[in-house]
Design a protein around this nucleic acid. Structure first.
Lengths: 233, 233
DNA sequence: TTGCACATTGAACGCTTGTATTGGATAATC
DNA sequence: GATTATCCAATACAAGCGTTCAATGTGCAA
């Protein structure tokens, strides 16, 4: 049962892998059981036999992707975009799952949403805690800070197709990933915005927030207090 | 023909608007002509009559969205996330289109890809030119810099559903948008990464790039030269 | 060998889809 | 006022979908 060669997997696993690929490429609605069966080299009936229904197959893919990604993230460094913890081997294993996740995030899968929320919580904890090399961000809205931080990372993955096209390299590969991470590092590190423009923008946004929300999400302290009162995990 | 009230549009426009909504919500494959017709309050046959086929309807939505978004972007400030040029009125008009675009980016529409590439070119031009308040970024790979910059913005829009859930506010609304933009501003402005960590990360990424690409995308100068040789528009 | 449980297949069914067609209502034109 | 064009609804139909099911192949215990 263990140590099988990559091409001698059980039919169930082959179907799951094919489904991950087909779901990632065509979306949940676009992928068909017949197409998945063809990609897995089995008959459509066998897919039904092993997973019962298309929705159950999707759930199985979801659970597998979530579990594997969580485990891989734990094994590597828990850092964000520029983490050196991605060994090439782990990257290969995770790659198809990330493609699937990218689609699932848009197609509305529960697993993808869970993964996103977990990442927000992890980001929040990391930003709030004392991580070496990371200073606590100065922000009036730590929650939004963590959400945006996570969203930036996930969002890039979701549009990896366009990123790859514009970059000329597959973003979900070692080279493209490194190139993107370095640019990301440049963006975070450099201060491209002039200080006076920053204060002007911030004033505009604060005014927008004051206008649209009334007392709900005030400009400075209350927002921070509210975010701090949220459960950190 | 002109000055019609919002609810007295021609049937063709009503169908198009409904299609934009349905495509945005269920994806291109998930949306059905019957569903679009129901949403527009017309018969399915009328959709066929006006647009010929589902694919043609999609193309019409694409063109309309691209043209309207381009025009709106031109009217407002050509800036990125924190631009104060988004008046509330323009925002309302653009909102459904952005939802559609978010889906179209993943479903693989030509218009969305065009919009993305245009944004990359615009970002590149802006970063390379002399925009007041914007300093030219210090990066070895200006092209990747512009691509990532654009991808960050587009990616956030694509996962707006998850952003809104995590934020507790609709991201594609005035309040959520402002809250997100402010957090984005905090992220770009603050230097959360310690300088020594930055150089370490950069060294790791440079090594990854040197390993994976060989002489194609070197660490420093050649990449910059290559990117500069690309057409700026 | 026999019996049995499981893996696997391929055909069939019901349903929804996109599309084509027919026909009627309404308004403009002569 | 008849005719024509345009707008619209309803129906019909072929294709593809997820799903079901009976039949066949396969490996293991008795």
């Amino acid at each position: 049962m263990r140590g099988r060669a990559a091409e001698e997997l059980t039919a169930r696993a082959r179907i799951r892998d094919a489904a991950l690929r087909e779901f990632a490429e065509h979306g949940v609605n676009g992928a068909t059981i017949r197409g998945i069966a063809r990609a897995a080299g089995v008959s459509p009936g066998l897919v039904q036999h092993h997973f019962g229904s298309k929705e159950a197959l999707r759930r199985a893919c979801d659970e597998y992707a979530v579990e594997t990604l969580k485990r891989t993230k734990l094994e590597g460094l828990s850092g964000g975009l520029g983490s050196p913890g991605y060994s090439a081997a782990a990257l290969d294993a995770v790659l198809p799952l990330q493609r699937y996740l990218a689609r699932a995030l848009v197609d509305g899968s529960p697993g993808a949403a869970e993964l996103f929320d977990d990442a927000v919580a992890a980001s929040k904890e990391m930003l709030g805690g004392d991580v070496p090399g990371l200073s606590r961000p100065k922000t009036a809205d730590p929650h939004a800070y963590a959400v945006v931080m996570t969203g930036l990372s996930f969002g890039l993955t979701v549009i990896h197709e366009h990123m790859s096209r514009a970059l000329g390299t597959d973003m979900l590969g070692a080279e493209g990933y490194a190139r993107m991470a370095r640019a990301m590092l440049d963006i975070i590190t450099d201060d491209i915005l002039a200080p006076d423009l920053v204060v002007q923008l911030r004033a505009t946004l604060d005014r927008m927030l004051a206008e649209s929300t009334g007392p709900r999400i005030p400009t400075s302290d209350a927002a921070a207090r509210k975010a701090d009162s949220d459960p950190p995990a």
